[in-house]
Design a protein around this nucleic acid. Structure first.
Length: 466
RNA sequence: UCCCCAGUAGCUCAGUUGGUUAGAGCGGUGGACUGUUAAUCCAUGUGUCGUUGGUUCGAAUCCAACCUGGGGAGCCA
C-alpha cells in the first residue's frame, strides 16, 4: 500500500518530517482566516482522526477544500509534524489533498457531524460504521474475537467448524429456521398429504443450527480440547435488547473434565479477553467510559481482579428466600431463576461474577450429567453484574444407561441420537463445556444497551434489511 | 408474544385543553473571526405533524387498527 494508517501515524511509528499519505473520510473541517483549514480524517484504524493542516496556497483550496464536508473521501499527502495546537501530538502539513469522493447534498447526508441517536444510526446500517461509536464497537468486537481465538490457541484448543445447516431437529434449544429448496407454491406431498421432504435438497427436513455443541462433543471425544465459534440461529419471536435471530456463539468442550474444570475455564477465558481489550483498545474503551457507560473500564478491571463467587443452585435459592426481598416471581426450589433473581445474586448479594451450579434436572437439557442425588444435574451459569447470564454450561452425561434413561424420560427417540449415543458406547469419557453468547459479551464490554448495535447487520423479527 | 411509552423540519425535541400563517437547537448554506479542536458569533431555508380508517362544520390535536422505535416481561445466549 502506498499510504499509512492513521493509527500508525498517531502512535508515532513514523518520523517527524517524513512525507506520508493518508486516505480516509472527513469527519470535520474547520477554516482559519490565518489561511489554513483543518481537516479531521478518520480511516477506522483507531479511535482518533488525524488532523491535516491545509494551506490556502494549494491550487484546489478555494474550489475543493472549502467545499469538503463530513463523509467526503480524500487522500492527503504531506509532512508529518508535531502539532502546534492542543489535542493531538502529530498532524500532517498537507502538500496535496485529492478529493476521491464527494458527498452529494451534504444537507441530507445521514451521518452529519453531530450527535445522533443510536436508534437513528441503526436505520443506516451501511453508513453507521463511519461514526465514532460504531467504529469503536467494531474494533472492540474484533479485539474480543481475536483474543478468544488466541486464548484457546494458547491453551491448546482446536477450533472446530461445526455445521450451520443441520438435518437433525434434535438440538432442542428453541425454534429453528427451516432450510429448503422446495417450491413453496407447489409443495410435493406424500400420500397422506404431508409435505414430502424426501424431495428436498437434503432428502429430509433441514434447519439452521441452534448450537454446535452436540457436534463439537464428537471432536472433544477425540482431540480433547476444542471449541466452536460461529453463527447460530434462533427463530423465536423474541423482541428484546438482548436477542438476535442470528448471533455468534463460542462453545468450548473439553474431555476428561468435570463441571469445576468448565467453570475454571470460563473464568480464565473471560479475564483473558477483558484484559486484552483493556490493553489493546484503550482508546475505544475510554470513549465508552466517557460517552456510553461511566464504569466501562473500572468494572472490567474489577472483573479481572476478583475471583468468581461459586454457589450451588440450592444455596442460591436459600439466599434469595432469606434476602427478604419481594420478587415479582416467587422463589422456591425447582424454579428456573428469572432475570431479577440472577441480578440480585450477582449485583447485590455477591457483588461479583458468580457461578451457580447444580440445577434441578427438570429445568435443564437431557445431555447434562445427573448428579448423585438424582435430583440435580451438573449444570452451571455464570452470572455477571450488569448483564445477568453470560455463560451457560454443563458436564455432559457420559454414561449410556443414564443418558438413555433421560432421553426416554423426556420423550426423545434414541434413534435420533444414534451418533451422539455412540460417543458413550465407544471409549466414553467425562467431558464438559459451555456456551458464550459472543454478541452479549460485546454488549457487556462496551456498555451498549442494545445487542442490535454491537453486530454489523442485526437480524431480528421483521429485521433483515441490508 | 404480552404490558407500558413514543412517532412533529436532514437530526434532537418543544408545542397544539380540535379552529386561520407549526417553533427552537444542531446540521447544511452564506458571512465574520480565529493554529482551529463536532470552536465561536451573525444571517438563512426547510414540514403529506408514522400509516389507514372513523368522529366532527373543521383533525397534526379525539377514537380505532396497523406499522416503526424505546422500556419492561417471557424465551434464551
Amino acid at each position: 500500500m502506498t499510504h499509512t494508517s492513521v493509527a500508525d501515524l498517531l502512535a508515532g511509528k513514523h518520523q517527524v518530517g517524513e512525507q506520508v499519505t493518508v486516505k480516509g473520510w472527513i469527519r470535520t473541517r474547520r477554516d482559519s482566516k490565518a489561511g489554513i483549514s483543518f481537516l479531521a480524517v478518520h480511516d477506522g484504524s483507531c479511535f482518533n482522526p488525524i488532523q491535516a493542516v491545509v494551506p490556502n496556497k494549494l491550487n484546489n483550496y478555494d474550489n475543493e477544500i472549502l467545499r469538503l464536508t463530513a463523509g467526503c473521501s480524500v487522500a492527503i499527502t504531506g509532512n508529518l509534524v508535531e502539532s502546534q495546537g492542543k489535542g493531538q501530538s502529530f498532524e500532517i502539513q498537507a502538500d496535496e489533498v485529492t478529493v476521491i469522493g464527494w458527498v452529494e447534498n451534504p444537507d441530507s447526508y445521514p451521518m452529519a457531524a453531530k450527535r445522533h441517536s443510536i436508534e437513528y444510526l441503526r436505520e443506516y446500517a451501511h453508513l453507521r460504521p463511519r461514526t465514532n461509536v460504531i467504529g469503536a464497537i467494531t474494533r472492540v468486537r474484533n479485539c474480543l474475537s481475536q483474543a478468544l481465538h488466541r486464548f484457546f490457541h494458547e491453551q491448546g484448543f482446536y477450533w472446530i467448524s461445526t455445521p450451520i445447516i443441520t438435518a437433525s431437529d434434535c438440538e432442542g434449544a428453541g425454534e429453528m429456521f427451516r432450510v429448503s429448496t422446495l417450491d413453496f407454491a407447489n409443495l410435493p406431498r406424500t400420500e397422506n398429504g404431508a409435505v414430502d421432504f424426501s424431495d428436498d435438497f437434503f432428502g429430509k427436513e433441514a434447519f439452521l443450527t441452534v448450537s454446535g455443541q452436540l457436534n463439537v462433543e464428537t471432536y472433544a471425544c477425540a482431540l480433547s480440547k476444542v471449541y466452536t465459534f460461529g453463527p447460530t440461529f434462533r427463530a423465536e419471536n423474541s423482541n428484546t435488547s438482548r436477542h438476535l435471530a442470528e448471533f455468534w456463539m463460542v462453545e468450548p468442550e473439553i474431555a476428561f473434565a468435570n463441571l469445576d474444570d468448565a467453570a475454571e475455564l470460563a473464568e480464565k477465558m473471560l479475564k483473558y479477553v477483558f484484559k486484552a481489550v483493556l490493553d489493546e483498545r484503550r482508546d475505544d474503551m475510554e470513549f465508552f467510559a466517557q460517552r456510553i457507560q461511566k464504569d466501562a473500564i473500572t468494572r472490567l478491571e474489577s472483573f479481572i481482579s476478583q475471583d468468581f463467587a461459586q454457589v450451588d443452585y440450592t444455596d442460591a435459592i436459600d439466599i434469595l428466600i432469606q434476602s427478604g426481598r419481594k420478587f415479582e416471581y416467587p422463589v422456591q426450589w425447582g424454579i428456573d431463576m428469572s432475570s431479577e433473581h440472577e441480578r440480585y445474586l450477582a449485583e447485590e448479594h455477591f457483588k461479583s461474577p458468580v457461578v451457580v451450579k447444580n440445577y434441578p434436572k427438570d429445568i435443564k437439557a437431557f445431555y447434562m450429567r445427573m448428579n448423585e442425588d438424582g435430583n440435580t444435574v451438573a449444570a452451571m451459569d455464570v452470572l455477571a453484574p450488569g448483564i445477568g447470564e453470560i455463560i451457560g454450561g454443563s458436564q455432559r452425561e457420559e454414561r449410556l444407561d443414564v443418558l438413555d434413561a433421560r432421553l426416554s424420560e423426556m420423550n426423545l427417540n434414541q434413534e435420533d441420537y444414534s451418533w451422539y449415543r455412540d460417543l458413550r458406547r465407544y471409549g466414553t469419557v467425562p467431558h464438559s463445556g459451555f456456551g458464550l453468547g459472543f454478541d452479549r459479551l460485546v454488549t457487556y464490554v462496551t456498555g451498549m444497551q442494545n445487542i442490535r448495535d454491537v453486530i454489523p447487520f442485526p437480524r431480528a423479527p421483521r429485521l433483515a434489511d441490508y
